[in-house]
Structure formats: structure tokens, C-alpha cells
């Protein structure tokens, strides 16, 4: 599979269709990949594609806005991210050539999330057990059934561990704001002190900001060094966007925020 990919990439570079290719390279061991930026034909052999290609590479697109970019997408959500970025005018459609590795490894594309989790077990015995205990595997529907108090307790416990490293924000393709609100000093929305309430506030505000834009690509979830199940939140906002507004992000639909009609009743949007 990697060979076909390398061939495609070589042709693109050789024909000058792209200036840089963003793809995956081997990481520090067989179970890890890392992003790689290739602009020389000689380096094409570094490109690989396998079931451990979990990062959403579209996060690197806005900073390469002015270049012609070829980008490897490993799963469907990555593709959706690129469309969302085009919709939000962060990249130019004509500047991006998508190399859909997901299609080449179609059998893997939907299973990659699982692969990521399997990796967890390899690394640390019993981690999956712990995650299950903490409700990581819980479906959104199940989670919604819990009482407000139970849900609060759950998240309080999770965000107790957060170290505010902002990895979730850094890997998020739609977190491209020139200056994130948590970094602002005038006004200071959130101070630096790491405590549960502020950690929680940060993540929840981030969720509000990516509402209707998040592709549920799992990048934040996978990046979290302390294993906070952010996927539960991203699944929830994707579900809400669909149920409340009939909206799926990354499909080129008009964002629900800008589609209000006069006769649209409040009861309808609950």
C-alpha cells in the first residue's frame, strides 16, 4: 500500500503539481507514525500508510495556505476536515490535492479508531479496563441518560487530571484561530492556574467553539496525554448538530448559525 502511495506522491512532485506533500512517516517504533512534509522527490520513500496513521494531517493545511499541497488522508473524517476548512475559507480548494489513502486501505479506514485503542493495550496493560470503568466506552445515548449530578461528577473527575497542555487544541484542524481565547490577556478569559473548574471551562468552551465544525476526527481524543475521553464530547456535539439543526459538518451545508428564518420556531430547535 505504501508503495502505491509513494508512486502517486512522486508523480505529483515530479510533475510540479504540488510543492509539498503532507503525509505519514515511521515513528519511533512500529506502532507509531509521525507527520512528514516532503518537497523533494528523493524523500518520497519516507511516506508510509498503515493502520497506525491516526493523526488528522489537515491541521497543517492553514499554515501552508499559500502553497500547493498534496495531503494524505487516512480516514473519512480527515477528508471532511479538509472540506470544512475550505468552507471556512481557511484554505483554497485549488491549492489542495487530496491523496485518499483511506480508499486504498478502505478496509482499514473505519477500523482505525479501534487500532488506536488496541495500541493502548499494548502499551499499558489494563488501561482499557480503566477506561471502561471511567465510562470511556459509553455511548452518548447512555451518557445522556445519567442525571446532571452524575454527569458533573464524571467530568469533574476527568478534568481533575487535565494538565492544560492544550494538545487537544493544537491537533484540532478547526482550532485555527489566530489567537486562542485562553491565551488572551485583554480581557483575560481564563487564568493560567490549573484547576479542575478552569480545565473543564476550557474544554467546554472549546467544544462550543467547534460546534457544527468538529468532524469527530478523534485527533484531540488521541492526543490527550492523560486520556480524557474527549470523544464523548465530540460525539455529543455531532449528535446535537444533527438532531437540532439537521446539520453534518464538512458536507458544505450552510452553518446552522447563519440559517435562521423568521418562521423558525424556538420549539422546533428545542
Amino acid at each position: 500500500m505504501s508503495k502505491t502511495l509513494q508512486e502517486t506522491a512522486r508523480n505529483l512532485l515530479a510533475e510540479n503539481k504540488v510543492e509539498v506533500i503532507i503525509g505519514y512517516a515511521q515513528g519511533y517504533d512500529a506502532f507509531h507514525t509521525r507527520p512528514v512534509f516532503i518537497s523533494n522527490v528523493e524523500d518520497v520513500s519516507k511516506l508510509i500508510i498503515n493502520e497506525y496513521c491516526t493523526n488528522n494531517l489537515s491541521v497543517y493545511l492553514p499554515i501552508h495556505k499559500k502553497l500547493k499541497v498534496g495531503i494524505v488522508t487516512a480516514k473519512e473524517q480527515d477528508l471532511a476536515s479538509i472540506h470544512e476548512l475550505i468552507n471556512e475559507h481557511q484554505i483554497l480548494e485549488e491549492n489542495v490535492i487530496i491523496i485518499e489513502a483511506a480508499k486504498q486501505i478502505s478496509s482499514l479506514s473505519s477500523e482505525l479508531g479501534e487500532a488506536q485503542r488496541d495500541r493502548g493495550i499494548d502499551e499499558e496493560d489494563g488501561r482499557q479496563e480503566a477506561w471502561k470503568k471511567r465510562g470511556y466506552d459509553m455511548a452518548v445515548e447512555e451518557f445522556e441518560k445519567l442525571s446532571a449530578k452524575e454527569r458533573e461528577t464524571f467530568w469533574d473527575k476527568e478534568f481533575e487530571r487535565c494538565i492544560r497542555c492544550y494538545a487537544c487544541r493544537q491537533v484540532c484542524p478547526v482550532c485555527y484561530c489566530p489567537d486562542c481565547f485562553v491565551n488572551r490577556t485583554m480581557p483575560k478569559y481564563l487564568n493560567e492556574a490549573v484547576d479542575m473548574n478552569k480545565n473543564k471551562l476550557f474544554s467546554l468552551v472549546r467544544m462550543l467553539h467547534v460546534f457544527g465544525r468538529c468532524m469527530d476526527c478523534r485527533a484531540c481524543n488521541n492526543a490527550c496525554p492523560v486520556g480524557i475521553p474527549l470523544r464523548l464530547l465530540t460525539k455529543k456535539i455531532a449528535k446535537d448538530a444533527l438532531e437540532l439543526f439537521g446539520y453534518v459538518s464538512g458536507q458544505g451545508q450552510e452553518h446552522p448559525f447563519s440559517t435562521f428564518e423568521k418562521d423558525e420556531l424556538l420549539e422546533e430547535i428545542r
Partner: peptide, 12 residues
Amino acid sequence: LLCSGCRMCYNA
């Protein structure tokens, strides 16, 4: 300086 040019405001 802070605007990303996403056009959310423009559409809304």
C-alpha cells in the same frame, strides 16, 4: 489581527 476570515459573521 484576531480575525481568521471564516465568514461566520458575514453569513450570520
